[in-house]
Write a protein that binds this DNA or RNA. Structure first.
Lengths: 248, 248
DNA sequence: CGAATCAATATTGTATACATTTTATCACGA
DNA sequence: TCGTGATAAAATGTATACAATATTGATTCG
């Protein structure tokens, strides 16, 4: 038998490999995933592969076929924009909880560091691909930290689950790569939202904190729509394969 | 080998059996679930049991132990009230989508039937246990139908996931069984909310539809708090075992 | 020529054996 | 007495064999 990597479990290995295949477009939406094939491509045996498939189904990337097995789920453009709005709604709740329940200055520090780091990146005009890549990571970190401030494990969990689709979606990447004039402007507006939400939480203004996160999500939706109207570089983005060609 | 029920898959059978054990309190929060033991109690073999465990973990009832295996998750009172508010927030979004996207009279019909049926039940003063049981079913149906009106599969999916905890929680049952004077009053207020949300959707008032569903959730939270202050009949409600005794 | 049926094949569902890791127990020594 | 270490038991992680089901293709009949 082939060498096995003992550092991570076979189940996790299979899950990561399969998710990669889905997000990279090796497996097309609607396509049935054969366990045997998955066993060959992931190197794990059938049991961990099956566990990975169940997890990916729960994650929302796969869909169970009634007669047995799984297929790659297909998403419409609206499915993705709804998911973004959904996530924004939950993040709004998290921001409100944070504001209402109170947050110490010490807890806000990492958020502010993120903010400053993003400011630094956005000073570049136009922003480079490398800088944009850093931006994506920092932005994700900011949102994760903000979510944690809610001190609500169930909410954190839900937001994590709700993030699968928005993150698999290509909105930000497309914007950057298509080098639209709007791209940088949208990032700057988003950063302003970040600044406001921190201010609202500091001043314990729950309603304002919530409202700005929902606005933030609506910005992301507009971002996605704009990106999809300018599909120049879309084939560079395999994640987009998730989007059904014939959308509603 | 023992007889096997071929009408449902072993995986589903195991999942249902285990969920029953958790919700009925046979398995206490924090307790490790032994696969071998689960195999004995469910009648399925280890493979389907493991799949069921993974599903229940994703469902939020179990927690993975780092060193391996799963344990029953414990929830604080605040975890549950947060989950109720979270669900209300998502239902608010669903109601807003429904209002904004438009709903035909034909689609609203089953909702109105639910409404009328609940009205009929609430005419009893005080409400009987049997009637209350019907109420619970009708109420769940109303919420499910309302969710569907959003025409957003990702949102419907998220709401389903967010419902696990609120439904496992004992709020309504405790209220009814403890026969508090407030119990019936709360049901009546809730019914009023149902009426308002339908009206708002019919008139395409998204903001109002959303607001009322969030208020509806806050009512449920007050209901839960009230119930937990009057723990007279709590031991009748095994689902409550989910709540940690030492809450924050 | 098309549709239906049956057989062959492939794939999933289930069970179990094996390997590895974790955990409990006990003995020994400080 | 308490802590530490080794050993044994138990539990999980993994792999694979077997059973049942679904799918495909070919053949035959209308």
């Amino acid at each position: 038998m082939a060498e096995v990597d003992r550092s991570v479990s076979q189940t996790v290995k299979a899950q990561l490999a399969l998710r990669d295949q889905i997000l990279s477009g090796s497996l097309r939406p609607g396509e049935r995933i054969s366990e045997l094939q998955a066993v060959e491509t992931t190197g794990a045996s059938r049991t961990p592969v099956r566990m990975a498939l169940v997890r990916l189904e729960e994650e929302g990337l796969l869909e169970a076929i009634p007669s047995g097995g799984f297929m790659v789920k297909a998403f419409s453009e609206r499915d993705i924009s709804d998911s973004i709005e959904l996530r924004g709604t939950l993040e709004g709740l998290a921001a409100r909880f944070a504001a209402e329940r109170g947050v110490s200055a010490r807890e806000l520090e990492p958020l502010k560091e993120c903010l400053a780091a993003i400011d630094e990146l956005l000073r570049q005009v136009p922003i480079s691909i490398e800088a944009f890549s850093s931006y994506v990571a920092l932005n994700a970190r900011f949102h994760a930290l903000l979510t944690e401030l809610s001190r609500s494990p169930p909410l954190v969990r839900q937001i994590d689950r709700a993030s699968a689709l928005p993150f698999a979606s290509p909105s930000g990447f497309v914007m950057a790569q298509s080098a639209l004039p709007e791209a940088q402007q949208i990032l700057i507006i988003g950063q302003e939202h970040h600044r406001v939400v921190i201010d609202a939480i500091e001043n314990r203004e729950g309603a304002r904190a919530e409202a700005i996160m929902r606005e933030h999500a609506r910005l992301a939706v507009r971002n996605l729509r704009l990106a999809l109207r300018n599909r120049t570089h879309l084939d560079l983005l395999p994640a987009l394969a998730l989007i059904k060609t014939a959308t509603d």
